[in-house]
Write a protein that binds this DNA or RNA. Structure first.
Length: 636
DNA sequence: GGGCCCGCAGGG
DNA sequence: CCCTGCGGGCCC
């Protein structure tokens, strides 16, 4: 890292040192990472104009960051990039190509070499060595986002890079970046898991020890849904949400652990994802199926949902600013509304959140894919992101002018967040700087010590005071009937299962081959995604017969996971090679383990293999599991 | 993609 | 009992 006194300009061209908009004439750009810096605020600005063109920022010059560089290899990479950049005989395109080859992007020559390297026993370790580094900051990818051209960057680096470019292009290959992705990059959670697995495997741990994300399907949708005719007709829209699978009361605080999950004996894990709010409710992470806050004004708030319902929300992942409820005109039988028409007050759910703030209670947080403005939202469905604490709350004038209640949430969970490539949970972190606090009124902070806090001895977050006693009866129980008990798969089956769960193509339901990352951050096999649109591809380019045809064609090219328009992406989709390399390496490791197991267990012959496959299969939802089953007897 | 409108759960 | 609500399917 650079010295604290040396900071670049942010995405808006604002100098992070003097907090002023840096004049263009005062801005110099690093030749390695292309970040703009405010020259007048640098401790050691370049002396002559000649130096400006060849200038390296404090982050890239290596002088002020001795420990941060992972390996000599990466350092050499910087040297090579510099050599390419300063070669006057090359055009920009050629430079891009060279750099691309160097960084292991597409480019024929590099591929064989890479493959050979991964084959030669270095395995995932080799990949970590130089393939997993963001080519902007040269550090291990953190909060990775993937471009349609198949390249990966840290979220922050990507935003920095895109922010200071007129024409949005990839930092490696200069291919255009779709405006939507430039505006709202979303973290590629499959890449996150790939990095975590690679790290584990590098440090000698089995991937099997990793807690993986789940996508819960609708297997046992409810006992008492669809009570009216209209509700039956329109499917889930008006259905009640059905049976609760966990044995917690509605006012239960904190993480949902294995003892409250008799069906699976797992508890609700960070990263677990459900199709919608109804399903999320069934697993107890957040009970209200419309409201964003679960809580009681005289007791506290247990959970919140971030779904983009309030434009004042600001999401930075590990912390975020949440807006209270109310202040809207819901006349005309509406459930939500965009426009505010009066001030919010600290009453009802808003007061419940304030109680949780004062007491330092743990608050469960779920994020919905509907939150479009956040990079941390899941690509689909509703995801449990773990425990946060409300460090402060206040009121201020909202974007629409009326007062809103505001809450500063800071993450404090023992499991890593779904966006970090780190394998560890949170450590206490200093409170973030919140500029709007200057205009805050009615500010409340925690009084006394928090109920949920970090225990230095145990090295984890835990209740420091007894949790508030429930005043409600537990959920309707009868949970045992819902999920079948399953036996624990064998060691390799377990690893295999995790690889499949994390890297499954949602079209062929197998581990991805030649993975593509769409601009909407979904991952599929190249062949599967292209196959899904076979015969329809590229018509858009050829025909110029009129808008109707064009529109009709466009409508068909939708992402199978989220209906995002993929027609541009599909014209030239590029494999995410970094992702591919890890998947292949992990699979190879798994195969090697399996072969070893087979050698060790000579006596248990052929049925061993088939059993293992069954165990794996049983945990992957079959396609028709999603079908909603209406229980006739329950409707009467 | 935006507006409409509904059932439903839970707070008070 | 009434009020509220960061859903969700459908229709355009």
């Amino acid at each position: 890292m650079a010295e604290p006194s040396d900071l670049p300009c942010d995405a808006d061209g604002m100098c992070m040192v003097c907090k002023q908009k840096a004049l263009e004439s005062d801005t110099i750009t690093c030749k390695t990472c292309v970040t703009p810096w405010h020259a007048t605020c640098l401790t050691a600005p370049p002396k002559a104009l000649v130096d400006v063109a060849q200038w390296d920022c404090p982050d890239c010059s290596g002088v002020s960051q001795p420990a941060a560089k992972p390996a000599a290899d990466a350092g050499g990479l910087v040297e090579k990039i510099r050599a390419i950049e300063s070669d006057a005989s090359l055009t920009d395109q050629e430079k891009a190509k060279r750099r691309q080859q160097l960084l292991g992007g597409a480019g024929g020559g590099g591929t064989d070499e890479q493959k050979q390297r991964t084959n030669e026993g270095g395995g995932v370790l080799e990949i970590l060595g130089d393939k997993f580094n963001c080519s902007i900051c040269m550090q291990l990818l953190e909060r990775p986002v993937s471009t349609p051209c198949g390249h990966n960057f840290c979220l922050k680096c990507f935003q920095k890079w895109v922010g200071q470019q007129q024409k949005k292009t990839c930092a490696i290959c200069r291919k255009a970046i779709p405006p939507k992705m430039a505006m709202e990059p979303r973290i590629n959670s499959v890449m996150v898991m790939a990095i975590r697995m690679a790290k584990l495997s590098q440090s000698g741990f089995s991937v099997g020890t990793l807690k993986v994300h789940h996508f819960i399907h609708n297997q046992d949708r409810p006992d008492k849904a669809f009570t009216t005719e209209r509700a039956q007709k329109s499917g889930k829209a008006n259905a009640c949400s059905g049976k609760i699978f966990v044995t917690i009361p509605l006012d239960f605080f904190g993480p949902i652990t294995a003892e409250n999950d008799p069906g699976r004996n797992l508890g609700v894990m960070v990263g677990e994802t459900w199709e919608d709010r109804m399903e999320c409710r069934q697993w107890g992470a957040h009970f209200p199926h419309v409201a964003g806050i679960s809580g009681q004004s005289d007791h506290g708030a247990q959970s919140v949902a971030l779904s983009g319902g309030y434009e004042d929300d600001e999401d930075c992942g590990d912390w975020f600013l949440y807006t209270g409820s109310g202040g809207r005109d819901l006349s005309g039988n509406k459930r939500t509304a965009k426009n505010q028409s009066f001030d919010q007050k600290f009453t009802k759910q808003n007061e419940a959140l304030r109680v949780s703030c004062r007491e330092g209670y743990p608050v469960r947080v779920v994020r919905s894919h509907k939150e479009k403005r956040s990079s941390y939202a899941p690509q689909a469905g509703v995801r449990y992101d773990g425990i946060y604490r409300i460090e402060k709350c206040w009121r201020k004038a909202g974007i629409q002018g009326f007062k809103v209640c505001r809450y500063l949430f800071v993450r404090c969970d023992n499991e890593p967040a779904p966006w970090t490539s780190d394998n560890q949970g949170d450590r206490p972190r200093p409170p973030p700087n919140v500029p709007e606090l200057k205009h805050a009124t009615d500010t409340t902070e925690r009084k006394g010590s928090p109920a949920w806090d970090y225990d230095e001895e145990k090295g984890q977050w835990t209740w420091k005071k007894p949790p508030p006693e429930s005043r409600r009866t537990p959920g309707d129980g009868d949970v045992g009937k819902i999920s079948k008990k399953r036996k624990l798969p064998s060691r390799n089956g377990y690893v295999k299962e995790k690889l499949l769960k994390e890297f499954m193509c949602l079209i062929c339901r197998k581990v991805m081959v030649l993975p593509l990352t769409t601009p909407c951050a979904h991952n599929f096999c190249k062949a599967c995604l292209e196959g899904a649109f076979a015969g329809q591809s590229f018509v858009k380019q050829r025909t110029c017969e009129g808008r109707r045809t064009l529109r009709a064609q466009k409508n068909v090219m939708k992402c199978p996971s989220c209906t995002n328009d993929l027609s541009d992406f599909l014209q030239n989709p590029q494999v995410n090679r970094e992702l591919m390399n890890v998947i292949e390496s992990l699979q190879k490791e798994e195969e090697a383990l399996e072969a070893k197991d087979a050698e060790e267990v000579v006596d248990s012959e052929s049925d061993d293999e088939s059993n293992r496959d069954k165990a794996t299969e049983g945990n992957i939802p079959a396609e028709n599991d999603e079908k909603v089953v209406v229980d006739d007897s329950a409707a009467h």
